[in-house]
Amino acid sequence: MPATITSTAKQQMVREQYTSTTQSTSLERPENQYVYNIGIYGWRKRCLYLFVLLLLIVLVVNFALTIWILKVMWFSPTGMGHLHVTKEGLRLEGESEFLFPLYAKEIHSREDSSLLLQSTHNVTVNARNSDGEVTGRLNVGPKMVEVHGQQFQINSVDGKPLFTVDENEVVVGTDKLRITGPEGAIFEHSVETPLVRAEAFKPLRLESPTRSLSMDAPKGINIKAQAGNIEALSQMDIKLHSSEGVLLLDAETVRLPKLPEGTRGGSDRSQELYEICVCPDGKLYLSAAGRYSTCQEYSHVCQ
């Protein structure tokens, strides 16, 4: 029978072989051994620590300045200070000062407050086209308001044009144009209007100091004074002309106090009743009333 070798016997044999081999082998170690130090020492180490310290100080100062700027400028998730970013655009609360031009598509105030644009010199609003050229300008200065554009129009709340100005005409679209100046209104050229009326209990006066005053209408002119007199004064002549109709003076009493009196043969006598006569050129004169017309007898005024 073959001999059986146990595990204990195997370990003992391996240990004996390792011991015999180790004892017979001798390793020679070098006498001079060199030691290399790994790392940074001396002044380099001090400079590195100083640089790290300065970097840490800079980071702390930057972080502190950032926090201070965020606090002073009132930065928030919705905007900065009184300036809030919304879906409709930018919303600005309170008063703000712009040092450079402001470009915006639409500017409007809150529903419960008015919009105020204020400047120490003037306020200028420009409208530009796609090429950058100014097509409209509104300049509000300390002494005058200037509007440059092809047309200037003021509309009411419902969109009705109240006042329109262009190169050809000026249109006032209101039902009543009221002029409250003590000297009235001065027009250098013609005026076209359907009605001229004074305020209540105040007289209406149409005057041309150095030229003539003319009123023309295709269907007639109506001059009416409900609680007063109508006076027409002229240095030269007053002409009432109707091309197709008649001239009608409808009143209880019509007075012509300064009509000349006609004479017959150079004689003049007192008379209580007179007849109004008309010369061929339209001149009126008085003749002594008789049983029949006496205009021919007193027609020396027409000569």
Rank of each mutant, 00 (worst) to 15 (best):
L240E: 00
S190D: 09
R205L: 11
P161E: 02
N126D: 15
T25F: 01
V246E: 15
S76I: 04
A288G: 08
I179M: 03
M236G: 14
E88S: 05
V61T: 01
T263F: 10
A104I: 13
K219I: 15
D166W: 11
F163H: 09
L48P: 11
V157D: 06
S267Q: 07
L54Q: 05
T193N: 05
V172S: 03
E169N: 02
E95F: 07
L90Q: 11
Y36C: 10
Q235M: 09
L259F: 03
Q226W: 14
G265F: 00
S26D: 02
T8G: 14
V35N: 12
G173P: 03
Q33C: 05
L54S: 07
R128T: 09
Y34V: 05
E244S: 06
S270H: 13
R29I: 08
Y49W: 11
L248H: 06
I40F: 10
K176R: 00
L115H: 13
D175S: 00
I67Y: 15
V85G: 01
I69Y: 14
S242Q: 04
G290E: 04
L247P: 04
S208M: 05
T21V: 01
R264H: 04
L240H: 00
G181P: 02
Q296N: 06
H300K: 14
K224D: 13
V157L: 12
R264W: 08
E183W: 04
K219S: 11
E97M: 10
D158P: 10
N222D: 07
N32F: 15
P194D: 00
G265K: 01
I238E: 03
G89I: 10
P77D: 08
E88Y: 15
P194N: 03
C47S: 07
G141N: 00
R205M: 09
A227C: 11
E272H: 10
F152A: 03
A232P: 01
P218G: 04
E167C: 05
Q151Y: 05
E244P: 04
G81M: 06
P280S: 06
A3D: 09
